[in-house]
Structure formats: structure tokens, C-alpha cells
Computed example of a mutant assay.
Amino acid sequence: MLDLGFHQAAGLHSFTPQAELRMLAVVSQGNAGSGLETLWQICASLQRLGYPVVVLDGTAQETDNSPGLLHLLQHASWNDGAQLNLGATASSLAVIPAAKGLQHLSRKAGDTTRSPMENLLPYFRTYGLMVIHAPASTLGPLLTHTATVPLVVMGGGSAGVMTSYKSLKQIALHTGLPCMVAALLHSNTATERHKAQSQLMALQACAERHLGGPVRTTTIATQNPQELQRLALQLLENAGTMNGSLSALPSSTLADMPAHFVRSH
């Protein structure tokens, strides 16, 4: 009667990688340097958690010398599940040029009642996580019919607030989805953190007034591995599951994590 099926490792079982392919979305903006570095750090953190990650980089163009997503979609001979030959660029983190391929899928998104990303499932089912990194104008149509909450990395100053707001607006117009906005702290001083929080509050107020919905925000010290892991776990919580329909990750998956790992600031 007292056997409830719980034990000391029960919390860890909820993080055991599952068979489904999950999709994360990261909006690329003008802050290419810091934004890309943070993206690679997030992916490394997810891989340490046991999730094989593939990144479809919508900021990198496919070429004959550097084949990518467009080649995968256009060449019927690859439809048998053959893998991309990344050659000298291959690494433990699979990064595939995808600018043209994602734009192609984005243009076709309005012609179906299903997520266009489901078409990629046969090619990447051996991975645990697919990270889509692309401009908001490309990402917006791709996220229709999904439950994925995209990440916007906010740059510094008023320009960063305006650029982030434009990205939020483009995502909202296409999908109605909320976004999570992360402000990066490079020195992590009290002054820098206070300034970043003020910018996030301004962005929240603007989004609530003009877009009609709340925005989740957080500050991340880029030199702090624990904060980067927290951001990775928040993205995992916001992922959609590509198993025939892009549904939200069950909320119970992160229910047992300490509050400071899952809440937004």
C-alpha cells in the first residue's frame, strides 16, 4: 500500500532523453557575435544532458561546397535517409547551413494546416533536439501549428530593445506565440544587471501594450555555467515534440527542478 513507485532517481528519469525529436527555436538578430556564442554554449549544455543536438543555421547559406538543408529537400536520392556529408566541418555538434532551405519551408507554410517542420522528421530522427536558428521573418511562418516558444537574445542599449520588439512582433503576427527574451550580462556587475532588467521591463511593457500578451524574460551571465544551464533547461521546457504533431513538452518534465532553474526573472 505504501509502494508509490518513487525512489531517489525518480527526478532524474524525467530528464532521460526520449525517442521523440524536439524542436527549439532561437531568433537571430543583429547581435551576431554574442548571440551565436550563447547559442553554442546552450547546445553544449543540452548535449551534456544527453540530448544529441542538430542546429539548422538560418544565417548560413547553403552552397555546393557547403551543402545544407536545401540540398536535403531538393535531392530525391537523399530521401532514403542518407546523412549530410559535412566533411571537414563535422564536429560533435552538427551545424547545417539552412538559410535557403528554411526560407523555402517558410514560403510553403501557409499552404498547409500542419507544421512544415514535420517534413524534416525523417531526416533528423536520430537526433534528440533540433535547434532552428533564423531571423524572425523566417521563423514566424515555420512556428505555425507548433507549441514551441522561441528565444530572443536581446542586445544592449535602446537599439537592442527595439530590435527585440520587432522580432516579438513578427513572431506574434504569424503565430500568436509568446517569446522568451534573454538579456546577456558579460561582466555581471550590479549596474549592468540593473540596466538589463530595466530594458527588459521596458520591452515587457511595450509588448503587453501593443502585442496584447506577456513576455517571459530572464537575465543570463554568460560567464556563469549554472545560468547558461538554466537557460538551456528553460528552452527544453519550451520545446515542441515532433512526433506527428508539434505538441508542447509535458509540464511535469520539469516539475521537480528547483524553482531557480525553471522560473523567469
Rank of each mutant, 00 (worst) to 15 (best):
L168I: 10
S198E: 06
I171L: 14
T189K: 02
A182E: 09
H174G: 09
A182Y: 04
L200G: 00
R193D: 09
H194C: 04
Y165P: 04
N188H: 12
A183Q: 02
H194N: 11
Q170S: 09
A196H: 00
C179V: 13
N188A: 14
K169E: 14
S187V: 13
M180T: 13
H174S: 11
M180V: 15
Q199I: 00
M201D: 05
T189P: 02
T189G: 11
A196C: 04
K195S: 11
M162A: 13
I171N: 13
R193H: 11
L177S: 14
A196I: 02
Q197N: 05
T175W: 12
I171D: 07
A172Y: 01
L168M: 15
Q199L: 04
A172F: 09
A182I: 11
M162R: 15
M201Y: 11
S187F: 02
L173S: 13
L184G: 07
P178H: 15
T191C: 05
K166D: 09
M162V: 15
C179M: 08
L177G: 07
K195F: 03
P178Y: 14
A172I: 02
G176S: 09
C179Y: 05
S198K: 14
V181Y: 08
A182T: 14
S164I: 06
I171S: 01
A183K: 13
R193K: 10
K195A: 15
P178G: 15
A183M: 05
A183E: 08
A183P: 01
S167W: 05
Y165H: 10
L173E: 15
L200R: 02
K169W: 04
Q197K: 02
Q170N: 04
S187R: 10
M180L: 13
S187I: 12
Q170E: 13
Q170D: 15
N188V: 09
A202Y: 00
S167K: 01
T189H: 03
M162N: 11
A182F: 02
L184C: 05
L184M: 15
M162Y: 05
T163I: 01
H174V: 04
R193G: 03
R193S: 13
T175P: 08
M180E: 12
C179H: 07
L177P: 01
S187T: 12
S164A: 15
R193E: 08
P178K: 15
T191F: 05
A172H: 14
K195L: 10
V181F: 03
A202M: 07
M201S: 03
Q199R: 03
S198P: 00
K169L: 08
H194W: 03
H186A: 10
S167N: 08
A182C: 10
N188K: 06
K195V: 07
A196V: 00
T163G: 05
S164C: 08
S167F: 04
A172S: 11
A202I: 00
K195Y: 00
A202P: 00
M180Q: 12
A196M: 10
A196G: 01
S198T: 07
L173K: 15
L200D: 06
A182R: 01
S164D: 06
Q170K: 10
S164R: 02
